[in-house]
C-alpha cells in the first residue's frame, strides 16, 4: 500500500529523516514510536506530501505522492490543528469535508452514527467554532474527519494525546473496530506504548530519523519497546 524508498530529509546539513526502505502492506496497522525529535511528524508529512524530501520518494498504491493527486481520495489524515478550519463549527467542518468527498446527507448521517459515542454529545450540533474547542475535542473532530471519504489509508499523529481516559479507550476500540470492518491501513504515531501496541500489529522505532527496530506480530512487543526506551 505504502512504500518508501531512500527517503531523506535534511535541514541545513542535519539529517532529520533517513529511511532506506519501508513497505506497509494493505490492512496493516503500522505504529510509529520514538522520542521527541526522532522525525515521526516529518516522516508523516513527507508521506502526505506536505514537506519536500531532500531525496527519495513515497508511493501510495504505487503512485508517487509528489506527482499525483490520486492518493488524496483514499488517504485520510490528521496531524495537527493545521488540518482543521478554525472558523467553522464542527458540523460545518464535517459537511465541508464531506462535500469535497461527494457525501450525500445519508453518508453524513452514517458518519455521525459511527462517531457518536466518541463525540459524547460535545461536538455534534454545537455552535462553538473549532478554534474555540478544547484540545481534546479538537482531536476528536480531526480524527473523525480523517475517516471521511471511506479511506483505505489513515495517518494519525498522536491520536490519544489530550484525550481524557474514557475517550482514549473509546477511540482505541473504535479504531480497532473500523479496521476490522474496512481493512484500513493505519499509520499511527504515539507516545503511549500501551495503546499503540494494543492497536498495531507492527511497530517501528524511529531514532534520529532512522528505523532502529521493526517489530512484527510477536506477543512481547511491549516488553521489547519498554526495554528500548529504558536505555
Amino acid at each position: 500500500m505504502i512504500s518508501i524508498k531512500d527517503l531523506k530529509k535534511e535541514y541545513k546539513g542535519t539529517t532529520v529523516v533517513d529511511v532506506t526502505e519501508l513497505t506497509i502492506a494493505q490492512g496493516e496497522s503500522f505504529g510509529l514510536v520514538g522520542n521527541n525529535g526522532a522525525g515521526k511528524t516529518t516522516l508523516f508529512r513527507m508521506i502526505l506530501d506536505l514537506i519536500k524530501p531532500t531525496s527519495g520518494e513515497v508511493q501510495i498504491s504505487g503512485k508517487n505522492v509528489q506527482t499525483t493527486d490520486e492518493w488524496k481520495k483514499y488517504t485520510g489524515s490528521f496531524l495537527d490543528e493545521n488540518f482543521l478550519i478554525s472558523y467553522l463549527t464542527p458540523d460545518e467542518y464535517f459537511k465541508f469535508v464531506g462535500q469535497l468527498h461527494g457525501y450525500s446527507d445519508a453518508d453524513l448521517k452514517n458518519f455521525y452514527a459511527v462517531f457518536e459515542e466518541l463525540f459524547n454529545g460535545e461536538i455534534q450540533g454545537k455552535t462553538k467554532y473549532l478554534g474555540d474547542l478544547s484540545k481534546g475535542n479538537l482531536k476528536k473532530a480531526g480524527v473523525a474527519a480523517a475517516f471521511m471519504g471511506n479511506p483505505q489509508v489513515v495517518v494519525l499523529d498522536e491520536p490519544f494525546e489530550n484525550l481524557d481516559p474514557t475517550s482514549q479507550i473509546r477511540l482505541k476500540d473504535l479504531l480497532k473496530q473500523l479496521q476490522r470492518e474496512r481493512n484500513i491501513t493505519y499509520l499511527i504515531s504515539s507516545h503511549d506504548l500501551n495503546h499503540v501496541t494494543e492497536l498495531c500489529n507492527r511497530i517501528v522505532i524511529l531514532e534520529k530519523g532512522q528505523v532502529i527496530k521493526d517489530l512484527k506480530g510477536s506477543s512481547n512487543i511491549l516488553t521489547e519497546l519498554e526495554e528500548y526506551f529504558k536505555a
Binding site: 502526505l48 506530501d49 506536505l50 488524496k72 496531524l79 495537527d80 493545521n82 478550519i85 471519504g149
Partner: peptide, 13 residues
C-alpha cells in the same frame, strides 16, 4: 494559512 496542510491533503485539485 491556518489550514493549508488540510487543503493540500484533501481530494481537491
Amino acid at each position: 494559512g491556518g489550514h493549508f496542510d488540510f487543503t493540500l491533503t484533501q481530494p481537491v485539485s
